[in-house]
Design a protein around this nucleic acid. Structure first.
Lengths: 229, 229
DNA sequence: TGTATTAACTGACAATTATCATGTTTTAGA
DNA sequence: TCTAAAACATGATAATTGTCAGTTAATACA
């Protein structure tokens, strides 16, 4: 049973909402649905993408290798996001790798379909522009955080972000479970440093842990920490 | 004597190249030319922009204040760049401040003019998209550099960037003269740390200084340093 | 042209963070 | 279920970077 884009609510959350019936049909006819297993890559840095991915479900990390071989996670994607647009628009190699953090359900849309619509539907272009503009603003914020905040502040901020964006389970643990390594690659620190900091937060009663799982205990104190108090 | 966009070569370097004669006339009729003195602001963080700036000449820094009150320079603009598009497109407050680093000659184009063209000319939208895509890629690179490279590496990289993008004078000094404070805010370090590093580079013969002015002496060694060797 | 202000610089020291070494726990798969 | 590999964890130490305090040099401008 294949899904039709016409019936997919996800498109309301991204630039595909600007499409008319006819365009939507073309997208639906050309798209390919895929299941990506946790840990598998959607694409890797330097690859030429011949389409974009629309995320129906699941979470991925967008990361980049630095010259010293360490991975830096630049962004976590949400449900409803379109991935790979930057690369398709600029007709450029991807500058980022995308890896599934949880099992994902995505639709691949060939770039010809996207290009055609971009060339004819200014509302679609405008929607895409708005999304890129949003990403750019977020990237600027990350730059400032990276250079002006301590690792401790960035980690506190990451916890709050994860809670706000992905929620928590019935026991108060973050729904999105990341490895310590992933945390280190988000805040940009050595894994050992990061683990130590998690221990410290736990000792202070700010968070609780259960294996890999992390739960936020003191939202406010954590927020203050992130803001530098 | 007012300049006409139709005769301005600068537009070949930015998204305005996608305009037709009629659109160009509209831009030219609605634009306002301005001279911005060194040190003056074009706009500041949190402001609502009612247009974009097309840079005919001069250099500016795009910066953002962090919660601890320190300034972080996110990007230096080049001749021919359009500033403020992100904010106008997203109909959002600016997330950055723009300050002239040298005397600037800019044209202010009202957002109505831009919006009209965006809504009707898909080639223009596509050009703007390409530029945003490029900015986004650069921002990702900055994130990785900030988190994975040392201050020393980032400074070396900054020197190379300044030489490649703004050139040097007949005596081999960088054409763009920045204050030590600006350098610190580019690489994201304390001003004192940065000054110390400049002294060190000088002592090692990698650069030369003359007051504020800085000249690159050993390009290759500096590049290697930036790459982490 | 003198003076006030700002920018550049240096030293001493403290805080943050990375690295290396090593042990423990968890996980995946034969 | 056993075992190898991966992930987690902690200590000791070194490197990096920031902070504070103070000096000197440059710049602006009355």
């Amino acid at each position: 049973m294949e899904h039709r884009c016409e019936n997919c609510i996800i498109r309301q959350f991204n630039s595909l909402r600007a499409l008319n019936k006819d365009e939507l049909k073309k997208v639906s006819d050309s798209k390919i649905s895929k299941i990506i297993k946790k840990g598998d890559a959607l694409f890797t840095e330097g690859q030429k993408l011949d389409g974009v991915f629309c995320v129906r479900n699941g979470v991925s990390k967008l990361s980049k290798l630095s010259s010293n071989g360490k991975e830096q996670i630049v962004k976590l994607t949400n449900r409803g996001e379109i991935m790979g647009q930057r690369s398709v628009i600029a007709e450029d190699f991807t500058n980022l790798s995308a890896t599934a953090i949880s099992e994902m359900e995505v639709c691949f849309i060939p770039k010809e379909t996207i290009s055609n619509i971009l060339n004819t539907n200014p509302y679609f272009s405008l929607e895409v522009l708005r999304h890129l503009a949003h990403d750019l603003k977020e990237a600027d914020d990350v730059i400032v955080n990276m250079s002006q905040k301590t690792v401790k502040q960035r980690l506190a901020e990451a916890f709050i972000y994860l809670k706000n964006n992905y929620g928590e389970d019935v026991n108060g643990f973050l729904s999105l479970t990341l490895s310590r390594d992933d945390y280190a690659n988000i805040v940009g620190a050595a894994t050992e440093s990061l683990i130590r900091m998690i221990s410290e937060f736990k000792k202070k009663g700010l968070i609780k842990t259960d294996g890999k799982k992390i739960g936020i205990v003191q939202d406010c104190t954590l927020q203050e920490l992130a803001d530098g108090f």
